[in-house]
C-alpha cells in the first residue's frame, strides 16, 4: 500500500503536497521518544507520533520511515514542515489518537 492510498483510506490529511506519495508502507510504529523510534521503527513504516519537530523529521528521514503520521492534532512546527519538504519526507495529519490511527493503518496493511 502506498502512502497516498493509506492517507485516503484512513482520512488523514497531507501537511503539504506529499513529496513521495507512491512510497510503499510496509509496517507501523507508535512512539514519541526519538531514540526509541530511531532504534525500533521499521524501514518503510508509518510512524504515529505527536512529535512535530525538526528532530522528528530527521529521525523519520534517517530511519527511512515511509510517512510520519502526526496524531492528536499535534502541531507541526514551521521549521519541521520546511525540512520535511526539503528532504522529501511525507507527513500526514490526523485528530485521531495514536492508537486509533495505528488501528486504521494495521487494518489497511492487513496486520
Amino acid at each position: 500500500m502506498t502512502v497516498k492510498q493509506l492517507c485516503e483510506a484512513c482520512g488523514f490529511v497531507p501537511a503539504f503536497p506529499l513529496p513521495d506519495p507512491d512510497k510503499e508502507v510496509s509496517c507501523g510504529f507508535c512512539g514519541d521518544l526519538l531514540s526509541w523510534a530511531m532504534g525500533r521503527a521499521g524501514e518503510g513504516c508509518a510512524w504515529c507520533t505527536v512529535m512535530g519537530s525538526v528532530n522528528a523529521v530527521a529521525v523519520a528521514s534517517l530511519a527511512d520511515a515511509a510517512v510520519l503520521v502526526l496524531c492528536h492534532d499535534a502541531a507541526l512546527m514551521a521549521d519541521a514542515a520546511a525540512r520535511a519538504q526539503q528532504q522529501g519526507i511525507n507527513i500526514l495529519l490526523t485528530g485521531l489518537p495514536e492508537f486509533e490511527a495505528a488501528v486504521c493503518i494495521a487494518k489497511q496493511l492487513g496486520l
Partner: peptide, 12 residues
C-alpha cells in the same frame, strides 16, 4: 521534552 533522553543513544 524534545523527545530525546530515552537512554537509547549509545545502545542504538
Amino acid at each position: 521534552s524534545l523527545g530525546f533522553g530515552a537512554g537509547m543513544g549509545l545502545p542504538n
